[in-house]
Design a binder for these strands. Structure first.
Lengths: 237, 237
DNA sequence: GAGTCAGTTAACAATTAGATAATAATGCAA
DNA sequence: TTGCATTATTATCTAATTGTTAACTGACTC
């Protein structure tokens, strides 16, 4: 028998929301981890800037919390680097700053952070800020029905309609089309699709994506997924 | 089944960034190599000035680290020689200088170096300087849509449009035109094109580039690739 | 006029994705 | 719990595309 804890903070796919924290002080890392895990998030940690970037690219977390002062790339640098990549354009980023350090705060928000939290950290503040951020975004975006041309993709009802005709897709099929359609025209590398839809710890074979693409194409009846040989797939009407 | 490791320091095509180090002291060479390879860079070495020039022309690395004091052409000389060639106009160059030797430092920067690092080398400093240098450059230009006259080259959508008409290119064709168009007017040597598009371990025949150039010219319909006989190709409208 | 170098073309090889069926895993309902 | 139905993954084969080579041609240089 398997006991499942009712987790609050899960994303569309039912997976716990991933948070990556980068700070060079192990104690702070642990305090944050404890409090966020208690809330049902899945927490990963990095102890410097480079490790943060590395892990971000492995995990594609939903939120990244960056200490401003870190060895091997500070928080602002990490943020800048990640933001240059389309994959991290929409990732939430929070900075941890020393209370007094106003210039960092300003710089941080200019760099494209979504919020900042002053040290010393109060767990309560931390948790409520994180929750608030997710609420803000998820209420806007998640569960948002995508409408591209005559295709509507509704993640709430798990439904895709083509010219008003509703098509039922399986979970993976739906996640695949939802990902591609979230940025029409943009090419998603096979690798990228794998981490976004399958998760980074899952290892699946080469043909798995193809088969799912095929099923989606088949069910929808129209050709809205374009193959870019040797590169990946894109959504295009 | 293919497992791909996520490397941090890679360029658009997912290849590791190439660094060439020239120093006559094997120990220093090894220290630097170790620390940079740990960061995910691909490291090549040379033990004097002439070898450095030779390898630079074979590899077209992203960054060259030159010791000032070397037998068979010192670092400054090597830098000067390379800088006379357009192909190395934008290659990053870092000098290694003895702490006290200020005149070399000045000379180095005058000669067109992008940074210098004082000996004795601290691995931390080295790595952060190298990373910083790449950040400066790549954050500016990564994955950017190129727009030259009526031609747009969009690596995110993997599309080339001429007067708004979208043209579909194969992977190698796209990489070729993207490379050439990244510096319009500048001549790329055949050698350079080979290492940048095909990678330096791949050996292909003489006519391969021509054929690809031909296909691009054909598909785009306009003549934007100019042949410079005996030298290479350039992008030009 | 021999030699070099790139353009052209077609043929071949290698790579990559599509199709299909079989198997495994999962979920659901009786 | 069991069995059925759906979904996910893999294996294998096939088709198509893409990449490379070879052989020939033409232009230009010395």
């Amino acid at each position: 028998m398997k006991l499942t804890l009712c987790k609050q903070n899960v994303n569309m796919e039912g997976k716990a929301k991933q948070i990556l924290i980068a700070d060079d002080e192990p104690d702070i890392l642990e305090i944050i981890r404890y409090n966020l895990e208690k809330e049902g998030y899945e927490v990963h940690t990095a102890k410097d800037g480079n490790e943060a970037i590395e892990k971000a690219k492995q995990l594609y977390p939903d939120l990244i919390i960056l200490d401003i002062m870190m060895p091997r790339k500070n928080g602002v640098e990490v943020c800048q680097i990640l933001r240059t990549q389309p994959s991290f354009q929409d990732t939430l980023i929070i900075f941890l700053t020393a209370m007094s350090d106003e210039s960092s705060q300003i710089k941080g928000l200019e760099t494209g952070a979504d919020d900042y939290i002053s040290k010393p950290i109060s767990p309560k503040v931390l948790v409520s800020r994180v929750n608030a951020l997710f609420r803000r975004v998820t209420s806007k975006e998640a569960g948002k029905t995508l409408q591209i041309g005559n295709i509507a993709i509704d993640p709430v009802k798990f439904l895709v309609s083509v010219d008003g005709n509703e098509v039922i897709l399986a979970k993976k099929e739906f996640e695949l089309i939802y990902l591609l359609a979230s940025k029409p025209g943009r090419v998603f590398l096979r690798n990228e699709i794998l981490t976004q839809v399958w998760g980074n710890e899952v290892i699946v074979g080469d043909r798995t994506i193809d088969v799912h693409v095929r099923k989606v194409r088949q069910k929808l009846g129209i050709d809205c997924i374009t193959t870019v040989k040797g590169v990946g797939y894109k959504f295009e009407i």
